[in-house]
Amino acid sequence: MAMRKIPAPKPNPETQAFWDAAAQGRFLIRRCTACGKAHWYPRKACPFCWGEKTEWVEASGRGTIYSYSVMRRAAEPYVVAYVTLAEGPTMLTNLVDCDFDALAIGQEVRLKFSPSEAGPPVPTFTIAES
């Protein structure tokens, strides 16, 4: 089956390091050194405590499906999903390389970067082997 073309994300000075790491196959999230919580999407000041000392950390790439939907009315059907990361936050993503009809909320997934059109790869997920 043909894959939907993923539009390139447009990094900015606040997020360039994330996409540079993605280009090297590393998936970063942002964590606050004051309150200790990780958040999504990444930003400089912690959205929970407004602490300004946050840092990039490499995420495990493990998560579970919080919700999903198979977009049927598209040239190439695809799956949007919210995945809750092992580190805490829930992120919007795609589920790829899996049987769309066998998906379920609560399933464990693992990171699998997908290429974008003329841009860095984007963090998507696939079903984790049990």
């Binding site: 993923i6 990094p11 999407y41 919007l92 993503t93």
Partner: peptide
């Protein structure tokens, strides 16, 4: 940049709420 790459639309977003 955290939504556009993933093909989020109005309907598949609401579909995730329904799911």
């Amino acid at each position: 940049q955290w939504e556009s790459p993933f093909g989020l639309t109005i309907i598949n977003g609401y579909a995730m709420c329904a799911m």
